[in-house]
Structure formats: structure tokens, C-alpha cells
Design a protein around this nucleic acid. Structure first.
Lengths: 159, 159
DNA sequence: ATGAATCAAGATATCTGTGTCTGATGATTA
DNA sequence: TAATCATCAGACACAGATATCTTGATTCAT
């Protein structure tokens, strides 16, 4: 079959947009700008941003000069927060076969699958948007130069 | 949006079927029997088994008394082998935005997503089908009693 | 106030994963 | 050989994720 990504395409888009917003806190960034930098189809990104806004991770402001901005600081938003806003990773709470006769316990197979899901969730819980700026400063989230130059051009910020 | 499982439905089905086959090596188990025990729609399971057969994890035998059996011993088949036969977990090899200007390196975001994918793969690589029988013997893969009794009834094996 | 910019919301289109069905091929039994 | 069982192979149907488009509502600048 086809390769399957760990996260859905929509979630990937959301993470890109959030990374971008984290890069310039307190600035209002329009959907069009985000779409260009993140290379996401604009009309679709608009939908994704609406979801993020509904989850109260970001706030949208209409009108001229409008756009989106983070609701909390980048260090207080984990990757898992973003993932949860779009496609939560589901834990296996009860036997998927709907068999009753093992009191609450998962079978070895599903116990291990659930453990893997938990590990993933814990990993993403432990990474904040801010963490992604804390390394080699020559490489920015969403691929350094592209983003850095585009953004600087657009907003006239000096580095 | 909707909850999204770590593995696709099809992969889940494949893991169930493989667990079942691992439980009775050297027996030929028909699609109908597997479907009943694993609670998977029979016609669809038939497709999944064909995929597993094409990947040479199992071999099908036609005709009266036919069915499927493992090609290797359960201890030599990892969960990842099964997953790879259906929907491989894809690593992020290059920038999904298709930006060229960072020589081979992933940006912090995708580097972390890829690390998570690698960790998952390593986890599933380290678990064999046989491992799932090595614990509390009262709980079998695919939910103990159900499978145990059904199987014993069907094949008349004593415990 | 008027017009332009921008988000909000809903309808619609497309593609892929999931699931069903039918006929063909091969194996067993009698 | 004939009949039956079960996999094999392909076509078809459906639903949900992805993507597009249109219209309305809000904000800003003039």
C-alpha cells in the first residue's frame, strides 16, 4: 500500500503554521502570508487555522492588517497541544474486538500498541514550539533561509 | 476532527491475523476462521491476507483444508515486519516543503517528527509475534478466552 | 460613510482507505 | 472426472480526509 505518515497532512500543516506564528509572537500574520511561507494551499490552511482558533491556541483578527497570533507564549504550547487540536492520537482504552471477558486488561498486542501511543504522546507533550528555536540558529523551523528571508522581507524585521 | 489511530485499520487487522496465526504455527487457518476470531470483515481480511502473502510473511494454500500459515517462526517476525507489509511508517528523509537551501539537514520541527517516527519503528522492530505469548498465560493475544476457546473448539487442541 | 482587506462559515469537489462482491484458479475428496 | 472448498485477482461501492470556492461579517483607512 501507500506510505503512511505518523501525523495526518492536516496536522502537519497545523504544526507548520504554529511554528511560523511562534517565530513572530505579537505580530498578526495573515493566512496568505502563512500559506506562502509554509507552502500549504491557502484555502485549506484557512480551514486549519479556524480549527486552531476554535481550540483557542490562536486568535484571529479580521479586517485590514488582520491575521492570526498565538494565544499563549511559544514555550507554553506543546506539539501535542497542536496535534490535539486537529487529530488527537488515540489511546487504546478497551479491547478493539469488544470482547468482555478479560477484566479491563488489554491483550498483549493492544497493550503494546497502546504503550507505543502513550510514548508518542509523551514525546510530543515534552516538546514546545519554543524548543524548536533553541538549537543551531542557522536552521530555523520550517527550513531556515526561506522562512527567515521571506519573513524579514515581508515585515522588515532585522535579525 | 476525528481521533486518528497510530496505525491504519488495515494494519490493525493484519496484526490481529498474524497474532492468530502465530498462536498455531504449522496449522492451516482459513480466512473464514481468522475472520471470526479476529472480528474482521471476512472479505476485507481476505485482501489483507493477500498483501501479507505477497510480502512473504505467510503462505496461502488453496483447496479443501486450505488456509494460511506463517512462513517464518513467530519469534522471527516483528510487529514492524507486519506493519511494513501494509503501511510502512515513513521516515522524513528530506524537507517536506521541498526547500533546497539547508544542505541535507531537516529543520527542527521535522527533525523531531522524524525522530519520533524512528523511535516508533525501533519499538515495533523490537517486538516479535512470539513476545506476545511470553507473559501472563491467562491473557492471550487477541483477548484470551475468546480466542483460546474458539480455537480449541475448532481444532480440538487440548491446552 | 465608503471601500478594501481579512477572517468566518458553509457548500461543493476530489482522492484515498475501507469494505463488498464476483468470477477464476488451484487443491482435495470421492 | 466431477464436485467442493478455499485462495487469488480484479471490479465496484462507500465514507472520510483533503482541497476548493463562494458568500457573509468584521476591521481599518480614507
Amino acid at each position: 500500500m501507500k506510505e503512511s505518515a505518523l501525523l495526518s497532512q492536516t496536522t502537519e500543516y497545523a504544526l507548520r503554521a504554529m511554528s511560523c506564528l511562534a517565530y513572530m509572537p505579537d505580530e498578526l500574520v495573515s493566512t496568505a502570508q502563512l500559506a506562502e511561507v509554509t507552502h500549504v494551499p491557502m484555502n485549506y490552511l484557512a480551514k486549519v487555522l479556524q480549527l486552531l482558533a476554535k481550540s483557542e491556541l490562536i486568535t484571529g483578527r479580521r479586517g485590514v492588517g488582520g491575521g492570526y497570533r498565538l494565544n499563549r507564549s511559544a514555550s507554553e504550547i506543546s506539539l501535542m497541544d497542536v496535534i490535539n487540536a486537529i487529530d488527537p492520537i488515540d489511546r487504546i482504552k478497551s479491547c478493539p474486538l469488544k470482547l468482555e471477558n478479560h477484566s479491563g486488561k488489554l491483550c498483549p498486542l493492544h497493550a503494546r500498541l497502546d504503550a507505543a501511543a502513550k510514548a508518542l504522546i509523551d514525546t510530543f507533550d515534552g516538546i514546545s514550539l519554543a524548543d524548536m528555536f533553541a538549537e543551531d540558529p542557522s536552521i530555523r523551523p520550517l527550513c531556515s533561509a526561506e522562512m527567515t528571508t521571506k519573513v524579514n522581507l515581508t515585515f522588515g524585521q532585522s535579525d
